[in-house]
């Protein structure tokens, strides 16, 4: 039933958007390609070659986990949450801090923006955790070469309190906000 609804929704979306955007593509339209030209006798051959990712050789994966499938969204499969394989960051079990810029910089664009979940292939919790740690590192001025062009790169030239060194506590990422004393008082008053 849900599949039918999704199909109908996508058809409706395509019928509306087809006038402005091209939806049909024979090749994977976003692939990184290099254009090569060579001559074979009298013919000039121009071809686009998909480039291999520069990261593949350096990739670290836990040994007992199947290779990652970033293109397949795990949430769409019918597995219950207990049977889902852990995402690669959960399986690696690394204790990443916000100062580990060599790891965090792998999850950002060149403007320092965190990549979305469909690209990183992380689980929901890890995506949130790493996203928060990226913003911590940015606030602490540790990744200033990965920032938008209009931002103040040098942390010492920032305004007011932002120009001083700040460190963060990673345990606060998933901490629930404590109820204030006054709020607790109101809650009790309503219960009676």
């Amino acid at each position: 039933m849900a599949g039918l609804v999704r199909l109908g929704y996508s058809l409706a979306k395509k019928s509306i958007l087809s006038t402005t955007t091209r939806v049909i593509s024979t090749t994977n339209q976003l692939n990184i390609k290099e254009i090569r030209e060579r001559t074979e006798g009298t013919n000039l051959v121009i071809e686009g070659v998909t480039l291999p990712s520069p990261r593949t050789e350096l990739l670290v994966r836990p040994p007992n986990v199947t290779p990652p499938l970033p293109n397949i969204d795990l949430s769409l499969t019918k597995l219950p949450s207990s049977e889902k394989p852990p995402c690669y960051m959960c399986a690696l079990g690394l204790d990443v801090k916000h100062t580990d810029v060599l790891i965090l910089s792998q999850f950002v664009r060149s403007d320092g923006c965190m990549l979305p979940k469909r690209i990183t292939g992380l689980c929901k919790r890890q995506q949130k955790k790493i996203g928060k740690m990226v913003s911590m590192a940015q606030k602490a001025g540790l990744m200033i070469n990965l920032t938008p062009s209009n931002s103040k790169k040098d942390p010492t030239k920032r305004k007011d309190y932002k120009k001083f060194n700040t460190y963060f506590d990673e345990t606060t990422i998933f901490k629930k906000r404590e109820m204030r004393w006054t709020e607790r008082f109101k809650f009790r008053a309503n219960a009676k």
Binding site: N28, Q29, R55, T56, N71, G121
Partner: peptide, 22 residues
Amino acid sequence: RLDHIPEEEVKNYPKVMEYPED
């Protein structure tokens, strides 16, 4: 800071995340 780490070291550091094909 990331910009104080030599570029060669950043490039050759073990990678965790792999880009999807597209």
